[in-house]
Simulated scan of single mutants.
Amino acid sequence: MLPANLYLKWLLVLLVFVVTSEQVAEAIEFHDIRWGFNDRLTAYHINPVTVLVENPDSTPFEGEIFFHQESFRGQQIDIALAATTYVAPFEKKWLQFYPYISDFNANWRISWSQKGIQHSKTFLSPRPVSDKSIIQLVAPDRLSTVIPGIKQFPEDLYPPVTGATDALQIMLLDHLPRWEKTRREAFKEWVYSGGILHIFHNSNGDPLLFPDSYSPLKRQASPAYYGNGVVYYHQQKLNDLSYAELLRTLNADKNSSVTSKILNVKKNPVQESDATYASCDSPRLA
C-alpha cells in the first residue's frame, strides 16, 4: 500500500494533468489558411488571408484574434490586425484578415486569449508574386467545372471590404452570387477600380439576369466600361470553351490596357448601346 504522502503527490499530479488536458482540448483550433485569392500573395498590395477556426468545446468562444507578421527570430513586424469573433460550440467559421504584403515570404502569427491563457500559432506564407490573381467565382454548395490553371474561389469568402480586393485582376462568373449588400458593394467597387469581369451564361445556357442591386451590370452590352474596369458578356457557357479558347480570351484581355481601351472609345465613339463610357462625372456604381 502506498504511503499517504506519496498517494497525495500522485493525486495532485493527476489533477494537474486532467486540468491541463481539459484546457488544451478547449482551445479553439485553426485547420486551414488561404493566402490571397488563389493560394498565393501579390506583392505590394493588400491581400485577403482567410483562416478556418473551429471550436471543439461545449462552450462558445467570443473574443479577439490577432494576426501579425514577425521576423524569423520571432520579433513582431508592423502592427497586429485584430478581429472580434464568435464561434458557437462544436462549430467552424471562416475568419479573414487584410494585411499589406511586401515582396518576401515571412512568418505570420495568430494569437488569442482563452480562459486567461494565451495561445498562438504560426504560419509561413508563400513567396509573393508580382502578378495579380485570376479566379473563377463559385457557389460553395455547387460543383463547378475545374479550369486548369485557374483557381476556384468560394463566393462566401469574397471580401466584404472595399480595398481588400486590390490583388484581384480577373474574375470569371457564370452564376448570380448570393451576397449581402456589403459584398455586392465591394464587388462593384472592384470593377469600378479596374477589375476585369467575364460573365458567361449559367449552367442551363441562359444569360445571367442581374437584379437592380447589381445595377448597372444589368446591361448586356459587351464590352462595357465602368470607371477603370471592364465587363465582357460572353454568349456561351463557361464549360463549353476549351482550355485553349479560354486562355486566348483571357490573355487577349489581360494584355490590353483597360485605360487605353477607354481612351480609344472616347476618341472613336460607338453607339451608346455598345459601350458605357467612363468620365470624370460618370456616376460610381451604386
Rank of each mutant, 00 (worst) to 15 (best):
D141Q: 11
G163R: 03
K115D: 13
D156E: 13
R184G: 05
K237V: 00
L172H: 09
E155P: 01
H201P: 00
N228V: 00
K151C: 01
H201D: 01
L238S: 07
V231K: 06
S125F: 09
F187K: 07
S215W: 11
F123H: 11
R183L: 03
Q114T: 01
A164Q: 05
L197W: 04
V138G: 14
R142Y: 07
W190V: 09
I199E: 11
Q236T: 12
L176E: 10
S215H: 12
R142E: 15
I199T: 04
G227Q: 10
N239G: 00
S222C: 05
P140G: 12
W190T: 07
A167E: 06
N105M: 06
Q114V: 01
N204F: 11
V138I: 15
H175C: 05
G229W: 02
S222R: 09
Q236D: 04
I147F: 03
Y232E: 00
P211F: 04
Y233E: 06
S193N: 13
Y225T: 09
P159W: 08
R219T: 02
A164F: 02
F153D: 08
S133D: 15
Q236V: 03
L172R: 12
V138L: 11
P223C: 08
W108Q: 04
E180H: 13
P160W: 04
D131K: 15
R219D: 09
H119Y: 15
E155F: 00
E189F: 03
K237P: 01
V230F: 05
S133H: 14
D212G: 10
K132W: 02
S120F: 15
L143V: 09
T182I: 04
L173V: 03
Q118C: 00
A221Q: 14
A167W: 06
I110E: 09
S213P: 00
D131L: 13
M171R: 08
L137S: 07
N107Q: 13
Y225A: 12
K132D: 09
K218L: 07
L168Y: 05
V129R: 14
F104H: 13
S111P: 05
S130W: 06
G149M: 08
H201R: 10
I147C: 03
A186I: 07
